[in-house]
Design a protein around this nucleic acid. Structure first.
Lengths: 155, 155
DNA sequence: TGGACAACGGATAAGAAACTCTTATAATCT
DNA sequence: AGATTATAAGAGTTTCTTATCCGTTGTCCA
């Protein structure tokens, strides 16, 4: 019941990029260094994000990565699904054939609903929300619980 | 972002056992057969459930497994945590040392809250709730969406 | 046109987790 | 004592995670 490290890396890299205007180029090298992320692994994560347009990649000298759109239009659901694939919560939701009771089974119904709850949470938070919260944390203008409540309010 | 198959097996076995009074003995063999579950794997799952008292194991002839308490007092959180261990959602919540920003990092705050949402859902559903829903599904007295709403209401 | 730089793609691999099966042991009943 | 059942330990297989490395390709610039 855990999101992979790759998602963690992806979010951190995106937050670093979000610090500057959308078109700005960021080199893999710099992102890895600033965020303390494994360079050779991060490139695969960014590739996944590029596939769905969350970031854009540019080859050649003066290449690098840039955000594909403004942070307020990048939801955590998009990030998680781009990197980890669809959120399923339970295997029978991922693959209906793995269960011969498909749709007529109470546990499945429950986990399907749990999935919906999780997706709503992930959809209601954008990169911009995380940025804003981080800024408040850094300023010391938000206690941790206030910050939490702030995120919940929307979900 | 998935619960393991072991949890699925555990829930199914528990539902089979819940069909009869609490003290009733159930043989591993029968549970595996009735639920179409892998016998040799199920034994490990039941072992985990026995460790926390959700089921009781009895050795020797006429042994078998029995429920440790009534289904209405077994929450899905208890089952999931007994089998899969604590729900963490993100590695830095599992192990604070894995992140040098512990507590001062917006993503962590978000995932900590997501975890709370998931735990609430898992806590608010008991084995008895699943049983009731299954009965309604079998009777055809509940459409799938009604059943879903029924579970959500509590969460 | 050629060299330097940066992402791309594929191969590889250690490690953990998930899953299955086997074998031997201990407890209990008849 | 003998049959039956859970318990314990372990090996083995597969898959996923988390990387690392290297040759290739595309792009810019001098």
């Amino acid at each position: 019941m855990q999101v992979t490290r790759a998602v963690d890396y992806g979010i951190r890299a995106l937050m670093l990029m979000s610090g500057q205007p959308v078109g700005t180029r960021h080199f893999l090298q710099d992102l890895a260094q600033q965020g303390d992320l494994p360079r050779n692994y991060l490139v695969k994560v960014l590739k996944s994000l590029a596939c769905v347009g969350i970031v854009r990649s540019h080859r050649g000298i003066k290449g690098g990565f840039s955000l594909g759109r403004v942070p307020s239009e990048i939801t955590l659901r998009q990030v998680v699904e781009a990197i980890d694939g669809p959120v399923h919560v339970m295997h029978c939701i991922a693959d209906a054939r793995s269960c011969n009771l498909a749709g007529r089974c109470a546990p499945e119904v429950f986990f399907r609903e749990l999935r919906a709850v999780i997706l709503r949470s992930l959809e209601n938070s954008t990169l911009q929300d995380l940025l804003d919260m981080q800024r408040r944390i850094d300023n010391g203008t938000a206690c941790e619980t206030c910050a939490e409540h702030d995120l919940v309010r929307k979900a």
